[in-house]
């Protein structure tokens, strides 16, 4: 029966060559035995549609062959949830900001917008989608490759089985402010404040003996604003160290301080603050080019700063929403 032989040939194609003859011979014996049984019961030969129905009942050759193959997977069920989690993190922390920055540049940077839309808006969106696809493909491909390697390592060494319950992270209190991070924040803020207060109170300052930087008079507004903000941040970090729990008031203060910092920074980017740079060993024409480049690129960073500011504000709002009015524990 030609149809049966064709079916068996198709199954054989998908089988590993070392076992294919053996498996196909066994399947053939089963198939012919079933065929003969049916024919004996009917008292006649089976018609072609009846044979087709019998083969259809057995399933596609590829699927039948697949059942004889060892179960293989690039990333197994143990690592798959972690793999999916990492993909989500990559999408949220890399691809989404990538799109937001593009939107920000298109919205706030006329030069970038003009360059992108010189053909048409449709072409600009198409170009962005193309770049996004390439970026996403590389990111997902890299994560997949790394997890496939981890899977292979796990299959060989079973390193996931070696773990110590005592090394599990401590219970998380979402309202607690970690003392370690408060300590670091306090130290960094105070060092920054002292440096700012003693070194930045001028529109002309030097780095070493050969580099001199001149800033516009607007700098003094920025200096004093940041002076107050840095002092407030340092005081805030000290308060967090003493009482390491978020309260609605403190979370609101955090948001206001961060918002003030973001606004100041955005203003700085747009303020054309740099008047000139003088470097002893570099000709003036070159330093002018550098000055121009800095003054051109700082406003271009404005959309990125806006996006970051919105992100930080979003995190702060989330923290405030999550806090209940009476969540501060009695003891630390």
């Amino acid at each position: 029966m030609e149809l049966l032989e064709r079916y068996l040939q198709a199954v054989k194609f998908w089988l590993p060559s070392r076992q294919s003859n053996d498996i196909v011979a066994e399947l053939a014996a089963d198939l012919y035995a079933q065929l003969e049984d049916r024919e004996a019961a009917l008292g006649r030969k089976l018609t072609t549609p009846e044979v087709e129905a019998l083969l259809k009942q057995r399933g596609r050759p590829f699927i039948v062959a697949n059942r004889f193959l060892p179960q293989q997977s690039l990333i197994g069920p143990v690592l798959f949830p972690v793999y999916r989690f990492v993909l989500k993190v990559v999408a949220l922390c890399y691809l989404v900001p990538w799109v937001l920055v593009w939107i920000g540049l298109m919205a706030f940077d006329p030069a970038y917008r003009a360059q992108q839309t010189q053909d048409s808006w449709f072409a600009a969106v198409g170009s962005m989608a193309g770049s996004l696809w390439t970026t996403a493909f590389i990111a997902v491909g890299t994560v997949t490759l790394v997890f496939a390697l981890i899977e292979r390592a796990q299959a060989k060494s079973h390193w996931l089985d070696k773990w110590n319950p005592s090394q599990l992270p401590p219970l998380r209190n979402p309202h607690q402010i970690r003392r370690a991070s408060s300590s670091v924040e306090l130290a960094v803020n105070w060092i920054f404040f002292l440096w700012w207060a003693t070194h930045m109170n001028s529109t002309n300052f030097s780095i070493g003996s050969s580099v001199h930087i001149a800033l516009s008079p607007q700098w003094s507004w920025f200096y004093w604003s940041y002076f107050i903000l840095a002092l407030a941040n340092a005081t805030f970090a000290a308060a967090n160290l003493i009482r390491p729990y978020w309260t609605p008031l403190r979370a609101t203060l955090r948001m206001l301080l961060d918002a003030a910092g973001a606004i100041l920074f955005c203003w700085l980017l747009k303020a054309n603050i740099l008047v000139g740079i003088a470097i002893a060993t570099v000709p003036e024409e070159k330093t002018q080019i550098v000055t121009q480049a800095i003054n051109t690129w700082m406003p271009r960073m404005f959309p990125v700063a806006i996006a970051l500011g919105l992100l930080i504000t979003g995190i702060n709002i989330y923290r405030i929403v999550r806090l209940q009015p009476s969540t501060e524990p009695v003891s630390a």
Binding site: I23, E26, L27, A29, D30, A33, Q34, R58, G59, I63, V64, R67, F68
Partner: peptide, 27 residues
């Protein structure tokens, strides 16, 4: 027994098993 008669034996006892499950299991 060989595969086909084994399938029939199991079916007669109420345990239908298709060949796609039986032969890989036997192996």
């Amino acid at each position: 027994q060989y595969g086909y008669t084994l399938r029939k034996t199991l079916a007669e006892h109420g345990l239908e098993i298709d060949e796609g499950t039986l032969y890989p299991l036997l192996r």
